[in-house]
Design a protein around this nucleic acid. Structure first.
Lengths: 211, 211
DNA sequence: GTCTATAGTCTGATAGAC
DNA sequence: GTCTATCAGACTATAGAC
């Protein structure tokens, strides 16, 4: 009966997952330098040494947390190239919004990773950049196709993508400031829907060619 | 000749200014927990104790840095209520963009302050919140007037402000990611102009009532 | 106002037993 | 794989001389 709840002697994978979840929450709230391995160990219920057994350095733990998030982002930003450009845009932005709304720690962590010049281990750095490039590349491609087909106004794609990311990531990283602005939790389901609606409206107004 | 370059025995104000500048750069790059008072002292050319004489705690130094930035932001976000709503919008967004572009450390510091739950000293917390509220309040007021006058479409003001802040602050905090996206430094003067143009275009497309 | 010296705590990381 | 015990160094902050 392998699918029964296992409680004792969790295997290596489960322990890793557990550590990653705890570390993600802490890094999101306090930043890389603000989190000590002691606290991570306490919250996971492990000793520090056991923790260092799973992740040989603090930086490797941080890198693993970031890559995990970027993998999800890459996965959720996929678009169907058969769709018309506006549907692709909705799929891209909608996917990213859903992902950031489901894991509330993702947006602050992503933002931090951008300006925190905390160089990751080279392998994580390469892998992370690759995932990010794929995600951004999809947006570039979808905008290019829309403009070439005459369905989108010709606006600078890089500017537009920066705006889209800003509108989306900032909002879901804005914490109490955002809660105060919106009058309720930015992660409340209906608030997430309203945010999606608004971001798509902004992009539509900018891009849509009136026919 | 009081205006000659004084080198020896700088007065208290100059020393404070010097410390604030050094600390701002460091906090922007490494976050609150990532900066030690030892490093701040080294970079300012003071001893640690001399530094603690000017700022009794690390938190008070951090608070002073943040408040300084918020003061500038408040100052630059002023609008002339006699102007028509679209001109007010341009003044508001343009002022904020200019400010963040002039002090490149401001945008990352502001973002950090939002989700870093690093409670400031109560006095700084209150003062900072007040400055921020003034700045945001101006945007709210300007949108309300524009809508009431029938010059702006009726879109949710809170959503619109979140989008404006996101488009502006994220861009100027995006560091190397942004540089890569734009193909040159996001702080190059002509890049700043292009960003301003784009953000205002987005807001115009969203808000402007065609006549 | 600035210094040297230091207190006491916390850091990331390791050694070696079980 | 997990533990206890420990390392050298960095941390914020203070005391007291000049």
């Amino acid at each position: 009966m392998p699918s029964l709840r296992r409680k004792a002697t969790p295997n290596q994978r489960d322990t890793r997952e557990h550590i990653l979840g705890v570390a993600r929450d802490l890094f999101a709230l306090h930043g890389y330098a603000g989190v000590g391995m002691r606290v991570v160990a306490e919250r996971t219920g492990l000793s520090k040494s056991a923790l260092f057994h799973h992740f040989p350095t603090k930086l490797s733990l941080y890198g693993a947390v970031l890559c995990r998030i970027l993998e999800k982002l890459e996965e959720r930003s996929r678009v169907d190239l058969e769709d018309d450009p506006m549907a692709q845009l909705k799929a891209w932005a909608g996917g990213v919004i859903d992902m950031l709304a489901e894991d509330r720690q993702s947006a602050p962590l992503l933002l931090r990773a951008l300006f925190e010049e905390e160089a990751l281990e080279p392998a994580d750095e390469r892998y992370g950049n690759e995932l990010m490039a794929t995600c951004i590349g999809r947006a570039h491609e979808l905008l290019r196709r829309g403009m070439d087909a005459g369905r989108f106004h010709r606006v600078p794609p890089a500017q537009t993508i920066q705006s889209a990311i800003g509108m989306i990531v900032f909002h879901f990283a804005s914490g109490d400031f955002g809660n105060g602005m919106m009058g309720e939790s930015i992660f409340a389901p209906e608030q997430v829907d309203r945010r999606k609606e608004h971001v798509l409206l902004v992009l539509e107004q900018l891009l849509r060619v009136d026919g």
